[in-house]
Design a protein around this nucleic acid. Sequence first.
DNA 1: CTACTAATCCCTT
DNA 2: AAGGGATTAGTAG
Length: 271
Amino acid sequence: MSFGGFLENTSPGGGGGARFVADIPYNNNNNMSTGAIAQTRLVSPSITKSMFNSPGLSLALQQPNIDGQGDISRMAENFEASVGRRSREEEHESRSGSDNMDGASGDDQDDNPPRKKRYHRHTPQQIQELEALFKECPHPDEKQRLELSRRLCLETRQVKFWFQNRRTQMKTQLERHENSLLRQDNDKLRAENMSIRDAMRNPSCSNCGGPAIIGDISLEEQHLRIENARLKDELDRVCALAGKFLGRPDIFVSFSPWPSNAEFKPGTCSG
DNA sequence: CTACTAATCCCTT
DNA sequence: AAGGGATTAGTAG
């Protein structure tokens, strides 16, 4: 079986007939479409170093999942493919996308041959080293990348791509983390809202806990206030008269049995 | 089908 | 020219 289109077994019998698939750059139609989309893309703020050090991310930002690569045979396959690709890339150096169409101009068997994207996976060791540096510095300079590429037998381009992609991955993880936090908040608020609505639908008396009818309460309160004012008036008059007769005009203040005004609260029941 | 990842393309700085 | 965002395409689960 081929891996990533670098090695292709041309003999179904498996008699060692593996050959390199021609390194063909992308279709230009592809460029057109991506270019058109790129015009309308949203520009998001660039990642800052502090984003990577966000304390809330310790769980979300674990090592990348390289589970499948525990398979020894595939690791070897990776390595072979990687080495094969590298030797080819030395021939086709610095291909910058659509400007390199020599595959089409040269031994083009088809007018539109299937374009295969070069694909491989870095080895766990390589990833481990890359991750280690990423932890230290998510944005290494050229010197650091060069050093790393030498150590890992990777192209500087590959190292650059890896860091680029890793930063993107980090950003999406951060966004996911934030999204989940927001979702939690949202759920909480929604539950709160529901309970408030419920309480509004079935109001209860703050004094006795029994059912309360809001409309009735305000009506009753009005009656009580009128009655209260009437009694106060009456008491006023009586006190004034008493004071006149007893020669103590201040008697009202000390005599008055009525509490201060804010006595009737909404939400009390009629019982 | 979905998630992940290496690589590509185009644009901005 | 380098880096970043959007995107593509190969692969595994």
